[in-house]
């Protein structure tokens, strides 16, 4: 037992056991603890309650918390699987696990489908894609005429919507991203390989005797 060891953890509500989280994910115990350092800094940026709310996630993603942003909302919904309105540490680790460079490609494809299937119908509909395109244009202050947007959507759906029913189902999505692997780039975070180096202070807050697992 090191001199930094402490058994009193209830500092943050809903903080799951790092050993358990490591057993459920590709992360080691040390990596889970390093992720907790990141989680702590995000979850205390507005209200220090050990949970990440939408405003805090948006602040971390955009460095601002004022503007409502469709993409930040989508990411928040992916984290908040139980729809509690907040992200706890377990949600945080389990979602980031899919973004690990070693996570199965299948998990990345499924999660990216969920990201674009905004209303959760099991299909990516043209209207959803259009809404996201418009949000992107607002975010980047890029201007495109509506007919150009429609052309982009036509081209995309010709390529992706194989049965031409106006929506992309899971197997069509699978097929499409396999042909366009660059679309999955956002589903991998190389940072996750070096998380213990990025947040070395986890060592001082570690609660397990053996962190080098």
């Amino acid at each position: 037992m090191g001199c930094f060891h402490s058994k009193t953890r209830k500092q943050f509500p809903g903080h799951e056991d790092p050993v358990l989280l490591a057993s459920q994910t590709a992360f080691s115990v040390s990596e889970v603890e390093a992720l907790f350092e990141l989680f702590k800094s995000i979850s205390s940026s507005v209200i220090d309650d050990g949970l990440i709310n939408k405003e805090e996630l948006q602040l971390a993603l955009f460095k601002n918390r004022k503007k409502e942003n469709l993409f930040a909302n989508r990411i928040f919904d992916l984290f908040d699987v139980k729809q509690k309105g907040v992200i706890d540490f377990g949600d945080f680790v389990r979602l980031l696990n899919v973004f690990h460079p070693n996570a199965p490609q299948e998990d990345k494809i499924n999660l990216s489908f969920k990201l674009y299937d905004m209303d959760g119908t099991g299909y990516i509909e043209r209207q959803e894609v259009k809404q996201m395109l418009i949000a992107l244009l607002c975010e980047s202050e890029m201007k495109l005429a509506d007919e150009t947007i429609e052309m982009i959507l036509d081209k995309t759906f010709v390529e992706a919507d194989i049965d031409q029913d106006g929506k992309i189902d899971k197997s069509e999505w699978h097929n499409f991203v396999t042909r366009n692997p660059s679309l999955l780039k956002i589903m991998t975070l190389p940072y996750l390989r070096d998380i213990t180096t990025t947040f070395p202070s986890f060592v001082f807050n570690s609660e397990v005797d053996e962190v080098a697992t």
Binding site: L38, L61, K63, F99, Y116, T148, F176, I186, T198
Partner: peptide, 26 residues
């Protein structure tokens, strides 16, 4: 200025909001 050559998802995935890497810019 040739975004039309890209498909909608390629464009959307350039959003900063979808780039979780920014979470690590502490």
């Amino acid at each position: 200025a040739a975004p039309v050559t890209m498909n909608a998802f390629e464009l959307i995935s350039t959003s900063q909001g979808l780039n979780l890497g920014s979470l690590f810019d502490r």
